[in-house]
Amino acid sequence: MAKRFMIYGATGYTGKLVSKAAKQAGMSPLLAGRNEARLKGIAAQHSFDYQAISLDEPEALEAGLSQVDAVLNIAGPFSQTCKPMLDACIKTGTHYFDITGEIDVFEYCASMDAKAKEAGIMVMPGTGFDVVPSDCLAAHMKARMPDATELVLGISGFGGMSRGTAKTGIESIGQGTRIRKDGRIVRARGALAREIDFGKGLVESVAVGWGDVATAYHSTGIPNISVYFEANAQMKQMAGMGGLMRWVLSLGPMQRMLKRRIDQEPEGPDEVARETGRMELYGEASNEKGETVSSRLTTPEGYRLTAMTSLEIVARVLNDEGRAGFQTPSAVFGPDFILEFPDTSRQDL
């Protein structure tokens, strides 16, 4: 009997992109989510089966997962959806994947390693742009400098984000900027900024609490890790925000107001932006001797890449190329995994 997987959250911006890409790849996932009417419409476009399932109904969720071998969770924020879905996956023996970039979700999944191994399932959060390319770059830097004690990652090229991604960012305002220091995830003291050359000269970049603060450590063991984005005006404002303002913006009424504003924005980058956009990543590893190596990685636009990498990972695991327990992309598929996708290249500097 052919193995099958579920796309949960198929009605969102990224869910629709991944569903379309699955059809183009000749895959036949079971589409799932909360809104039956919207699911029915998307499933009809691709001749997919669908099932309305709420994460608040464990028995129904487990019944749905019992029909498949793996689930690709695309319903964010993952701080709310990961735990109930992963708990159900462990009970049903279903491989778990998602496209999160949330540090706490990665760390929660890592804490479930033993239970996942006991259940015989693979747990891999971050199978999209968060964090496949940056995780592969981190592993490449480790290979270039095995004694590295510090890793800096930089990302440039964001042309827009989905509403779900934006809302996840709103939820993390109160946490400040988190980095990895001496193996521990800590809040940075003040704004961290530096200049990074993404291929067109040095540009100002600011530190962000990106998922690699969690995953790159699990992939490489490098104890000190920070992630930077090429700075725009909004990022600079966020980086310089004081603790009191962060606290105010983390309060329920402010969170709801900010999320309502996001709902008035476009659903995400349009097709032209996805097809023409490019992402530039920078990796820099240093050791205690003061030696440094650096590399750059170029990939397709983030949402386009997410559809490609997430489906490829699911396909490989359904083909028995996975490994039980909590895993990162580079740990299972190697640092060169990202180079297998079109319009992707890496340069050692």
Rank of each mutant, 00 (worst) to 15 (best):
S286T: 13
D270R: 12
G268Y: 00
R261V: 01
D263Y: 07
R246Q: 10
L297K: 00
T298S: 10
M279P: 04
L251S: 10
P269S: 03
R260I: 05
M238H: 13
R278D: 04
R246Y: 04
V293T: 12
G268W: 03
R296C: 05
V272T: 15
E267M: 14
L297M: 02
L244C: 02
R296W: 09
E230M: 13
A285H: 05
A239F: 12
K289R: 14
G302H: 09
A285G: 10
T298M: 09
L281C: 12
E301S: 11
E288A: 14
P300S: 13
E280H: 15
Q234W: 00
A239K: 08
S294Q: 14
F229G: 11
G242H: 02
T298W: 13
N287H: 04
Q264E: 15
P269G: 07
N232K: 12
G252C: 04
E265A: 12
L258S: 01
R260W: 04
D263F: 09
T276C: 09
E301W: 05
T299A: 03
M254H: 01
E265T: 11
M254T: 01
E301P: 02
M279D: 06
S250H: 00
N232F: 14
M241A: 06
G277H: 10
Y282N: 09
I262Q: 02
S294L: 05
T292A: 10
P300C: 07
M238T: 15
G283D: 10
T276S: 15
